[in-house]
Design a protein around this nucleic acid. Structure first.
Lengths: 219, 219
DNA sequence: TTTTATCAATTTGTATACAAAATGGCAATA
DNA sequence: TATTGCCATTTTGTATACAAATTGATAAAA
């Protein structure tokens, strides 16, 4: 899905900033492709909540503080449930996979700050991979289809770009706390530590919004 | 969205039964419309989980017992959260609306069984309306976009779920229990009664699937 | 017999033209 | 000046033609 990737990237990189109006024809010219695949891309982006459709054209979504609180509430709910289920259902190979994913996460963090040969994008990717491993281990495959709507916020607000090394290491350590609870089949601890982890991420996003009459945009 | 409604209805009414393969061209001829709107409809139906796409064409989804358990788990999570939040945030006008919706629900049930001038569709619609009122009162508008994926099961399996007057009256009474908890701002009771309500619905679906080598379809 | 290669048929993906709907501005009117 | 109605422009919705991909069957080769 090429047009989709292009537009999503442009939104996340701020080239199409919040509230910008986009028309199919404009995007078709921009991406050098016909309107048909553009339309499909827009439908998908709308279902992810990155754009809202108008009567003519669409608008890049801007998120209010209320949106952020509400979406993170849902993410907490879903990922907390995933962690709890994972603590019940995880197999040994699930455990290996989750631990491997978090080690990778730790590695790219290290490389990014020490040698500089890993990018923030690499870190983001490994982080996402870790969270996906937990969902996989939860044995409820239906969670996947809900997740895409609740994970866009840190991408849009690029909160990872504001993290220093200590904060990233902290996040790596919290992952290990979650893993330990899952490994020991401590369901409520798994849920609680995941909840706390998500709330912490939420607060990072909240820190970096600027407050203009109840409306907030990424910086 | 016309093609969408047509196909959805056909799936829910069993005219396109589970595992049936559908091609764009076939549907275009069937509905007397070009392939373009068909494609959009199929994308939407896929995102709701009613069909799965193949490399050529799509297939009407069939739900396994595992699917049913997993989807109802997520529904329990989302609607339980909605009820809990509603018990915190509900305004007086929210309360009126919810109570009104459930009275309507009780009325169409009565009419359906006594005078016969309400259809099962009417009942289903009022039930859905009641659940939507709770989400509205929860003050987390983002729940809506997740709900469509978790409410299809009782629709697909509806023929048996909704045929018994006692069951329906019971369901109406449970709604009132949920409402009472929300009215009294008893958050955990609101959540618990909603959880129980969803589980009860799940069990009705499970009762009426037939068990053929781990695969289940509506009868 | 089993496997592989090839080709025709089916079906989706993309481009494009035209129809239908929404918008904004301008002129006429109160 | 403010308001209404009309029309040109913009933009989406739909149909359709053609290109690309997938499939299944048939025939050739091991």
């Amino acid at each position: 899905m090429d047009a989709y990737q292009y537009i999503k990237k442009a939104i996340l990189h701020g080239e199409f900033p919040p509230k910008m109006r986009l028309t199919e024809e404009y995007l078709a010219k921009e991406i050098q492709i016909s309107r048909t695949p553009i339309r499909e891309a827009l439908k998908k982006l709308e279902s992810e909540g990155l754009i809202v459709s108008l009567k003519r054209g669409v608008r890049v979504r801007h998120f209010t503080k209320k949106d952020i609180l509400q979406i993170y509430d849902l993410r907490k709910l879903l990922e907390g449930y995933a962690a709890a289920q994972a603590s019940i259902h995880r197999t040994d190979s699930d455990l290996e996979e989750m631990e491997g994913a978090n080690e990778e996460y730790g590695n790219v963090i290290h490389h990014h700050f020490k040698t500089g040969d890993s990018t923030i994008e690499d870190i983001l990717e490994r982080n996402q991979r870790f969270h996906e491993c937990i969902i996989k281990a939860s044995q409820n495959q239906h969670i996947y289809s809900h997740i895409s709507k609740v994970v866009v916020l840190p991408l849009i607000f690029r909160s990872f770009y504001w993290f220093n090394e200590d904060q990233m290491r902290y996040s790596y350590n919290v992952h290990n706390t979650i893993l330990k609870a899952i490994k020991e089949k401590d369901m409520e601890r798994a849920r609680a530590s995941m909840h706390e982890h998500i709330y912490h991420g939420r607060d990072q996003v909240l820190l970096h919004i600027h407050d203009v009459d109840q409306e907030y945009s990424p910086t």
